[in-house]
Simulated assay, not measured.
Amino acid sequence: MLQNRFGKLAATALAGSMLMGAAACGGGEETSSAQPSGAGTSAPAASGAKVGLAYDIGGRGDQSFNDSAAAGLDKAKAELSLADTKELEAGSGETEAAKEERLRLLASGGYSPIIAVGFAYSGPVKKVAAEFPDVKFAIVDDAAATAPNITNLLFAEHEGSFLVGAAAALKSKKNHVGFVGGVQVPLINKFEAGFIAGAKAVKPDIKIDVKYLTQPPDFGGFNDPAKGKTAAEGMLDAGADVIYHAAGGSGGGVFEAAKAAKGLAIGVDSDQAKTAAPDLQGVIMTSMVKKVDIAVYDFLKGVAGNTVKSGPAVYNLKAGGVDYSTTGGQVDDIKTKLEEYKQQIISGKITVPEKTS
């Protein structure tokens, strides 16, 4: 969805030019494991593959969602015999036609597999995959784009968010926490639902403020630190002392506000106590880690071994696809309790809601 989507925003290029791109995070229904299901794809397998990766808004360097995907690609470069890689970025507010052309450019250039980072690629991936049936595609955070040559890399964001919600409630001294979502879409609602459930599991009467920065089709909420800061300042001024963001690059503004108010923040997607700006890392007590890097690497390894399959590959808490981070030691005193909640989710004793209503 979802960490700081800092970094550069590339301008949308015209069809046929070297488009740079990606959209915003996406989502879908979960199953119980991280194993792809469905029929195998038809493209030739992969030793020496040319890999294309189309980023979400912000691209490599966002310190979050995109950087996690980039880390998976980097690991594949180091460990698999990839012939070539091409990474393209997106600009804010671009059309589906631009996304299609970006994917088409990669496919026509001989890149296979191609990985699209984010649910906004759903329609474009489905369309271009039909045009290039011998090219393998993967899409992160979307279950809607289906075809014999598409693998859907999905995550149980609500389960990881439950754990950081519990952490927020355990750490809050004011019984008041907040959630900042980048864009009000079903995927980000999963983060909110899990966070609320986790906080209320600890303190049923806790006050929880919720603010979304933009509404679709405006996905700028994933890369607007100023809006993130303003939203967090409002919550902190109203009495919240811990704020969780699922807002990509906008999260940097949340961290700035928390630091200024001497509050605490919770990162998302990556371990942001490692990736955020150095002067802000200390305010991040934990992050909901979403292991896009593992999903990307697993997919590329499957292509290399000719074992990749189409359909959903779901990375949930049991599969290690989501978790909470412990960098900085700020949750060491509550880790035993968080681990208890984790095991209850894995065992099925706790079922975490995926929607707030």
Rank of each mutant, 00 (worst) to 15 (best):
F6N: 15
A22F: 08
G27R: 12
E29W: 07
E30P: 14
G38Y: 08
T41H: 14
S47P: 12
A49T: 03
K50S: 05
A70S: 14
L73K: 02
D74A: 07
T85F: 11
T85H: 06
E89M: 11
G91K: 04
A98E: 08
P113C: 06
P113V: 14
I114V: 07
V117H: 12
P124C: 07
P133G: 04
A143C: 13
A144E: 09
T146K: 15
A147Q: 10
F162A: 04
I188A: 02
N189M: 06
F195C: 09
V202W: 05
P204L: 03
D209Q: 04
P217K: 07
D224F: 04
K229P: 00
E233D: 13
M235N: 02
D237L: 12
V242G: 01
I243R: 06
A246H: 02
S250M: 05
V254C: 00
E256R: 14
A257D: 02
D269Q: 06
M285G: 00
S287H: 01
S287V: 07
K290P: 02
K291Y: 15
V292D: 01
V292K: 12
I294V: 15
A295D: 00
V296Y: 03
A304G: 13
V308R: 12
G320F: 10
Y324H: 00
G329L: 00
Q330G: 00
I334F: 01
T336K: 01
K342C: 02
T351E: 07
